[in-house]
Computed example of a mutant assay.
Amino acid sequence: MAPRVVTVEADGGSRGNPGPAGYGAVVRDSETGEVLAERSESLGTATNNVAEYQGLIAGLTAAAELGAAEVDVRMDSKLVVEQMCGRWQIKHPGLRPLAAQAAGLVGRFAAVRFTWIPRDQNRHADALANAAMDAAAGRPTATRAAAPAVGSDKATAPAVGSDKAIAPAVGSDPATAPASWEPRPTFTATRLILVRHGETEYTEQRRYSGRGDVPLSEKGRAQVRETATRVAALAPTVAAVLSSPLSRCTATAAAIAGALGDVPVRTEDDLIECDFGQWEGRTFAEVREGWPGEMDAWLASPRVAPPGGESFTHVAERAHRVVAGLLTAYPGETVVLVSHVSPIKLVLRDALTAGDGFLHRLFLDAAGISVLDMWPDGGVAVRTVNDTSHLAAL
């Protein structure tokens, strides 16, 4: 009889990163701890992260072959766990096909839960991975085992080049993200209503508007009134309204708070717009003409900042801190965040586990509304993106 619940322990490594690489995976009966299957293989030359994903894929494949209904995945790769839970973006294009293959396998089970564990709790899979790395380096060894690995209780050399946690995780740890198409009950989620501020003169003139405190225009004030009414209809009960400290946002937030019955507005520095440095206040055309190389580099990578400014990577870290704090402070409640284009785009990018190209393909209108739900186990549902139906009459 096939076990209903199994545990997959997986690991991978590379001696050189990239270098001789291999992975190991163990499938256990979750109730008895009995080893049901082992998988290990040499990968030739590959990176540490590629090997870790290959270990996960091999473990999930073995669990599916055994007919398991649910899987508890245990890995010492924080990167793989957080990316599979959808909390960290998959930035490297070489990992995206592997993550997609793993996600396809996840969909074959009723539930898959991911847990990060320390390396010393993953010795069995680590030993298999090291044996596979030996084979990749030209040392003779078995690459696929049918019985528990010999010497799994002895110290094994960690893979060289391991790059574990690179950013704080949203939600609880251990991280779990059950895979399911079944709608989650919305009352257990923390709902975020993301609102871009109303229009300013810079918006109309197509200028870079970052840290400069440009007020709402007359049209922007009209947009804000309609937006406040729309938010109140979407969420009559709101736990908090958070705003960037810039006046175009605080004015928008004040109108929303008034429509909700004078909910207090709290300014949050981490919601401020990206610092565009020397480009601040200049038109898009002026920047393209005056800084063509710098602009190309900026568009090509979120890690590049405008001259004297701030990178989108740093903005994402700020926005991440806000979201992580809200999940802890307002579990199961609704919170309104009034911010700017860059922070909102970055929150949506990560919620959708999208690539960096998303930042330049998504358009957010002034006074547009986006809604997403976030659960403590890492589940995310993006419900609305850039809703502007309330502005149709303007």
Rank of each mutant, 00 (worst) to 15 (best):
M1G: 12
A2G: 08
E9A: 05
G12V: 09
S14H: 06
G19R: 07
Y23R: 01
V27D: 08
R28T: 07
D29Q: 08
S30M: 08
S30H: 12
G33E: 01
E38C: 12
V50L: 12
A63I: 00
L66Y: 02
G67V: 00
G67H: 07
A68W: 00
A68F: 01
A69Q: 00
E70V: 03
V71I: 00
V73R: 05
V73Y: 05
R74Q: 10
S77T: 10
V80S: 07
E82P: 10
Q83Y: 12
R87M: 03
Q89K: 14
I90E: 14
I90K: 11
K91R: 15
K91Y: 05
H92Y: 09
P93K: 02
L95S: 11
A99L: 09
A99F: 10
A103V: 09
F109Y: 08
A110F: 04
A111I: 04
T115M: 03
T115Q: 08
P118W: 03
R123G: 06
A127F: 01
L128K: 00
L128Y: 09
L128I: 00
A132H: 09
M133A: 03
A136G: 03
A136K: 01
A137S: 09
R139M: 01
A142H: 12
T143I: 02
R144C: 07
P148L: 08
A155P: 01
G161L: 12
A165C: 11
I166V: 13
V170F: 12
G171M: 07
A175H: 11
T176H: 10
W181M: 14
P183Q: 02
F187H: 15
A189L: 05
T190R: 14
V195P: 02
V195M: 04
R196F: 03
E199V: 04
E199K: 14
E199N: 11
Y202K: 10
V214L: 00
L216W: 06
E218D: 06
K219G: 11
T227K: 06
A228H: 05
R230C: 07
V231N: 15
A232P: 07
L234H: 13
V238S: 15
L242E: 12
L242W: 10
L246E: 01
S247W: 11
A251E: 06
A255P: 02
A255E: 00
G261Y: 02
D262C: 07
V265F: 04
D269L: 02
G277M: 02
E280H: 09
T283R: 05
F284Q: 08
A285D: 14
A285N: 13
E289Q: 14
W291G: 03
E294Q: 15
A297V: 10
R303H: 15
V304T: 15
V304Q: 15
T313F: 12
V315D: 15
V315K: 14
H320P: 00
L326D: 12
L326I: 08
L327P: 05
T328H: 14
Y330K: 00
P331K: 13
V335Q: 09
S339E: 03
H340S: 09
V341H: 15
L348P: 03
D350N: 09
A354P: 07
G357A: 08
F358A: 02
F358H: 03
A367C: 14
I369P: 10
S370Y: 00
V371K: 11
M374V: 13
P376K: 02
P376C: 04
D377E: 10
G378R: 11
A381H: 13
V382P: 02
N386Y: 08
S389V: 15
L391A: 14
A392F: 02
L394P: 12
